[in-house]
Design a protein around this nucleic acid. Structure first.
Lengths: 196, 196, 196, 196
DNA sequence: CATGAATGAGGTTTCATTCAT
DNA sequence: AATGAATGAAACCTCATTCAT
């Protein structure tokens, strides 16, 4: 178990879609097996448990996201550029892997304390570190205003960005890029005009 | 059924706490009844179903929140002042009724399409109208920058604000008021300094 | 318990209608109480149990029916006239007390062996005696053909007659009297014409 | 689900016996599972619901009965012969499948209006057509007396015949054949002697 | 690899009944 | 004579999981 057979991959793909749409606890092993064209018991040849499927989805997603964030945080440029890139990458991820993001957003809160899912808390902490670095560095450099608590700023940004996954639908009046651009504009300059 | 007896209220209070903590589908009727000191079947003397408990919690919460928003939207002052008050009221609500907010945030997405819960979509739409009015009015008045799509702005704000319920813990280094203040500062002026 | 208060009578009337329509076990104490405008628990001021209501309905009905049959069996006239009268009385009862008949037909089979409902078997036996008397007497008198087992004849007649309660609807193309007349015609002369 | 495994068949056999004896609503899923030597939940591996078991029993029975009736109605001979054969087949069915007949007699009235059981009303109507054809044809041919409403005649016959299932016990003083013979004698010639 | 059958625990709900007030 | 709250048993059903074949 752990090697990537075709069936295995197929099951993950199906599970991802269903769990994203209905939630983990409302998605049954049988739902997944049905769509894969096998019996629910047969699913246990590929995964040790229902939780193991969720584990694999979340672990894979967090690994990829964290890697990308590490890469950006270690890249050249200014703190402001790096923060922008982190945000842009998040919007890109929402566009490319919306189901993963939805699952992450929905299930992570409850799971973080569950045995076997400690990696979620660790990853969340590491992500916070990486983003915070940019904010505090930018404040130190005088490019970000320092009247705002950087921890709060991080959370405001993180939540606004990732939550878009629940309402953004490609094919509407906005692309992921235009949503990203709008958000960065708002974040950079705020809502008020100079006169306001 | 529908009027408020003492037991009924007590059950609602318990259910609110448990559902906020574990999620609706992971909270069992027995969990609720156990904490109320009655048998699970006895709960059906007070409520027609498990769903009816959730309905009452969400309906009550949405009613109160919407009323407050309507009042603010209809009050005097500038669009900017009203938007600030909407946001401040949201933070206040998070402080005073965190369980209601958590349930609303967690369960509303799936429930909105379920029969009997249409009021959730209606309410969400009305809230969007009320907030949008302030944003577009502020943009028309030249007090809010108009390079940002007002719909996107609304959603960015809404999600950032309400999501704080998942991490804000009173008694830490921040009060609800200071979180609110920080958010308004960030929203008004953005992250960048004038030089940045 | 046992005296006839107004509420008591009202409950019996309601129960009769509901049990006839849905069956005893599918009719709940709450169904009955609801229609009576009281709470289900309050019903126990008037009756010791749900079964007691059924008992009263069936006992009363059987008493009345048996009395009438006894009276007819003891009346003057020929055996044939008395058998006709028994049958006519049954059709009359179906017209006047259809709910009682339906309940009797539906529930008696299972109940007959239940403690407290032994009177049903006793009454059924007595009724069989009374009807059989007429048949055997008629056969002895040479007015009824004696190639038919009188016990079988009784049951064929009884079942055909009482079963009409399940399909006869007054206000249609037949009255209870015309149904009765048709049945007696068929019973007396059979289906075949003299040539047939 | 729908094909016939051994366990499935075994469950049907058990359910048939229990439902015939106690009635559908008084027979529990556990009763059935207990006799099959499995847990009540395991029954749902074979059937979607308790109702589905009943559906299968009734549908199968109605199908077989209707087929036989159609065959007889389409066979050669006179209307009188065909009516006799219909009646004889009914008595044969009572002897061979008494549980099916009992269930059909007991549950059909209430079920006919329930979703999923519309076939019961359709079948009952088709059966009425088939039997009526013989009666009206016989009347037209002058072999059946035409003073009797054929619809009433059908119902009198149907009810008398099928109701025997509730009292006929093989091994007593009568066989199914002798009961059938007695009924046909009564139906053909009526009770009265020529002198009567 | 998959099936088919089963487990066992637990879920929501129903319902006749009791009883203090 | 009725209420309102509760009981306790049992109902139907779900679901993750196991395992012999």
């Amino acid at each position: 178990m752990g090697d990537g057979s075709e069936r295995r991959d197929q099951i993950i793909v199906i599970a991802r879609r269903l769990i994203a749409a209905r939630g983990y606890s409302a998605t049954t092993v049988r739902d997944i097996a049905d769509e894969a064209g096998i019996l629910s018991g047969s699913l246990y040849h590929h995964f040790a448990s229902k939780e193991a499927v969720l584990h694999e989805i979340l672990h894979g997603f967090q690994h990829d996201t964290l890697s990308a964030f590490e890469r950006i945080a270690a890249s050249g440029g200014s703190a402001r550029e790096r923060l922008d890139q982190l945000i842009e990458h998040a919007f890109l991820t929402i566009e490319q892997r919306p189901d993963d993001v939805r699952i992450y957003q929905n299930e992570t809160g409850f799971l973080m304390t569950q045995p076997g899912f400690e990696f979620l808390a660790d990853g969340a902490e590491r992500i916070e570190e990486l983003w915070l670095e940019q904010i505090t560095e930018g404040q130190a450099a005088g490019v970000f205003r320092d009247t705002i608590d950087p921890r709060l700023a991080f959370r405001f940004i993180r939540d606004a960005v990732w939550s878009t996954v629940f309402w953004f639908r490609p094919g509407g009046s906005h692309t992921a890029a235009s949503v990203s651009e709008n958000y960065l504009d708002l974040l950079h300059h705020g809502m008020l005009t100079v006169e306001g």
